[in-house]
Amino acid sequence: MNFVNEGIFHRLALPDWILSLYKFGRDTKTAYQELEMIENRLASPGEHNDLFSNLLQAREEEKDSSIALSDSDLMGNIFTLLMAGYETSANTLAITLSFLSVYPEVQEKWYEQIKEHVRTGDLPAYTDIPHFTYGMENIQEIKALMIPKEFARDTQIITFDANGQETPVPVPTGVDILLNVVALHNNPKYWDDPYTFRPERFLGDYNRYAWLPFSACPRACIGRRFAEVEMLAVLALIVQRYEITPAHKPEFVHETEKERQARLTDIGKVSFVIQAQNVGLTLQRRDLEHL
């Protein structure tokens, strides 16, 4: 999955014979080949008992109907569960914890909200999730990824140059593009001071179509609600029990507070998903009488 994630642009742009010319390309090609397991599973249908086998079995039961899953549908579902359903949430959580470590006032405000709605000694419950509004705003501030799209029909996109002049760009059917959501989320046209970590910006009115980590419209992410609940539950559990601070590493002992903040809030790399940096955090258990 690491090579599938890291090599997605190589895979999209280059044919197999070019990928075979260099090590990273070969590793990427191998990773994608290993992901293509449908035919192997079809040849030995009873040997496994997992989600993929269940999807295959469902396909067999519905093979004569119009809703039967194609090979492409099966691969799409598995890729979504392995990549979109795991990597995105995991990296967003890691980066959010890094930001909380260098913004103690934000972390404390989030902690106070948790204490307000979760009784002492209790675990956060599903019914508490709607009350964790400030935690959701923290997650919303970690907004960086790329969204791949394929044009289903010939169309035309209107772009604008630096002077605001319109330029039409014709796009034929079948063309793949990547929506630069990173640029959208940091566009000062839609966001006041976009590079400052300020979760409160989501308390008021904001352009809903200028915040697209889950895409939008009929093709929006079907796992959005699950991801939001999952991330809020994990964050609430951690912040409820631990105070998060930057780890003291010898190599960074002389860095200034501003340098530390920049290091721990650097998103790192953005490919298909954001990728958290290995920055190092310390979790100090809070006063047990409040738990």
Rank of each mutant, 00 (worst) to 15 (best):
R225N: 05
A262T: 13
E47R: 11
S20F: 09
V169Q: 09
I129G: 00
N77K: 09
E6H: 09
K143V: 08
I129F: 03
W211Q: 03
F151C: 15
A236L: 06
H117M: 00
I222E: 01
R285M: 05
V169S: 05
N40K: 12
V273K: 01
D64G: 15
H10M: 15
D266V: 10
A58R: 04
H10Y: 13
H290C: 10
D193V: 00
E200I: 10
E116W: 10
F197V: 09
R198Y: 11
R153Y: 07
R201M: 06
F52C: 03
L203A: 06
R208G: 01
Y32T: 00
L291G: 04
M136K: 14
E116T: 13
Q277D: 11
F132V: 08
L74V: 06
E166C: 08
R260H: 11
T265L: 04
F79A: 14
Q156E: 15
P124V: 13
V181G: 08
T28K: 02
S53W: 06
Y103S: 00
L14N: 01
P188A: 06
F202Y: 11
G135Y: 03
A220E: 01
E47W: 03
T196M: 06
E150L: 02
D176E: 12
L14C: 04
F160M: 04
V118Y: 08
